[in-house]
Design a protein around this nucleic acid. Structure first.
Lengths: 133, 133
DNA sequence: TGAACTGTACTGGTGTTAGCGTACAGTAGG
DNA sequence: CCTACTGTACGCTAACACCAGTACAGTTCA
């Protein structure tokens, strides 16, 4: 199990870690019931505070992906594949909703927004062809 | 011209003001070339600091909706619909890209993401059916 | 020119969030 | 029991966004 964080990524460290753990579960590197490394062990490995790891674990438990037992450790939840799926879906819905709402306020029509997404989804190479402002 | 802000809305005051000005332009209450109230006049009316109004004006100028002339005032830009369009589009693309990227990392397929968006775009009522956490 | 209007720059207070370290609390095994 | 491991709670700092006030700078017109 090898996680690697990038402090310069602009994304919070605990979120990066969460994504990597999710990915590990998705790809089968971590299976249901598997124990995760202790927060201190892991924190030394990826060079962050152990409280940052704890925060990632806690969030993932809240998502339903992990099960944490105080004093024993953190484990991949039994129904991680199914249960967390609906959680993820809800979370995804919220984010999609927020973005669509914002774009609408900027006077984009539903068709325009739809086009933006389809371009990003099905022609990601073309859609991405410029720097920041 | 009557703007009203709600400090309890959770949304920054300058953003609220920006939206209301956009709306005024959209509905024709403000037309191309029209002068907006001075930042101090308006700030007294809606009871915020004049720097907050200035920020809203400045952002809208950056968007291309307004044209500000130091010493003279703020005016609705001539091509308020067109010029800022490409800027807004770029910004929108970036945000769409970021979200799609994240969702992909969470193992959503292109089809699923597409469905999420279409639901939000064309059936917003159903898609929204819960509070925050 | 100078007074009265316009917007701008700068500084500081407040609230939120990420991240860290210390101290605390539960669990398991000798 | 006590030690060595687990996670947890709390307080601190840095960075950032929002917003306010003060001082500054450009424009207009009598």
């Amino acid at each position: 199990m090898l996680f690697r964080l990038n402090p310069q990524a602009g994304q919070p460290l605990y979120l990066q870690l969460m994504q990597q753990i999710r990915h590990a579960v998705d790809t089968g590197v971590l299976r249901q019931g598997d124990q995760l490394p202790g927060i201190r062990t892991l924190s030394e490995e990826i060079v962050v505070s152990h409280t940052t790891v704890a925060k990632a674990y806690a969030e993932l438990e809240h998502e339903g992906l992990l099960e944490i037992r105080h004093g024993s450790g953190a484990f991949v939840a039994a129904r991680s594949g199914g249960k967390s799926r609906s959680e993820k879906l809800r979370s995804a819905q919220e984010r999609v909703h927020a973005l669509v709402e914002t774009l609408r306020q900027e006077r984009f029509t539903a068709e325009e927004i739809s086009r933006l997404f389809e371009a990003e989804l099905f022609y990601p190479a073309q859609a991405r062809s410029r720097g920041d402002e």
